[in-house]
Amino acid sequence: MRLTCPLCGPRDRREFYYYGAADYLDRPAADAAPEAWDAYLHLRDNIAGPVRDLWYHDQGCGSWLVVDRDTVSHEMLSVRAVAEDRA
């Protein structure tokens, strides 16, 4: 399994740390209802198919990455830096 880091190029999966679904990007407001926090922290669509998740180039540039990926075929559809996405 390989990811193409936008900064470092194509690298083996072992350089990266996987965090979880990109849901983690959408942190609720501090005063959001407990249900919103429960959903943010715990509940997942957990799709068998195309998903968006978060990886970290741990053994590389330290970029957090938004990865579009297929959980059935393991196809990597796209990799972008979180920082670019958020800018």
Partner: peptide, 17 residues
Amino acid sequence: AGQVMRHLDFVAQALRP
């Protein structure tokens, strides 16, 4: 140490750009 560094990078890049 590693966990905290990763966490700080996440907060800086993803939550508080």
